[in-house]
Design a protein around this nucleic acid. Structure first.
Lengths: 109, 109
DNA sequence: CTTGACAAGTAGATAATCTACGTATATAAT
DNA sequence: ATTATATACGTAGATTATCTACTTGTCAAG
């Protein structure tokens, strides 16, 4: 359904804590109750793009399992962009609700 | 930003009353306070698609200006589809909010 | 020693929307 | 009278986001 918010969702997560790719996908599935089931073919290119834009940076580190994972961390520019996108999302969601509630509102006069 | 909801927005409007193309664009701009500024290159192909799918039907009629306009009317199938999309939208919006509010919720414990 | 979960990645396809056109009429401005 | 602007309907091609499908590799369980 709706598109163009994936970067905001991903940035929201790594704004809370550094995460690696698969962790991001899992966390999105959990929090959204399977509404977001991001594919690796969507996530990895997106992460690379966000890194190019300097919204995130990555580093390799040992996970609790002892394996090397590629972690992503948000930058100051990323936080700024995230705030912007969250404000845009609010505006968009409100606009949608105004449109679909239009008839109800009119009927409610 | 978000995509894939245009059909729901358009159907929401013509569910309230029959409308012609330009009227739909205007009404969306008004209600959304310019968040939705649909282009004709988006709307007309979409209307034709909705008509193909039998969610709307069209007829020509004289507008109050005396000019012939092509009006679109929702069908029963269209209303059914609209309800489905509105439920999906609610689910999606809630999922987004759960993801972006995650940190706040955790911090609020 | 093979199967399945985890992990990172790329290539190509699909779909939604936009930009940029084209056409036509009516009205307002100069 | 001519020009610009708004209305109205439409199409073609480009762009972008996401998905499907694939590859490679590690580790654990059976």
């Amino acid at each position: 359904m709706s598109r163009g918010n994936t970067d905001m969702l991903v940035l929201s997560l790594i704004n809370e804590m550094d995460m690696y790719g698969y962790q991001i996908i899992d966390e999105l599935v959990k929090r959204s109750n399977h509404t977001f089931d991001l594919k690796t073919g969507t996530l990895y290119p997106l992460l690379h793009l966000l890194e190019q834009k300097k919204y995130v940076k990555s580093y390799e580190a040992e996970a609790s399992t002892g394996k090397i994972r590629k972690y992503y961390q948000i930058t100051d520019a990323g936080r700024k962009y995230l705030l912007l996108k969250q404000r845009e999302w609010e505006e968009y969601a409100n606009a949608v609700n105004r449109v679909i509630a239009g008839g109800v509102l009119l009927a409610g006069i």
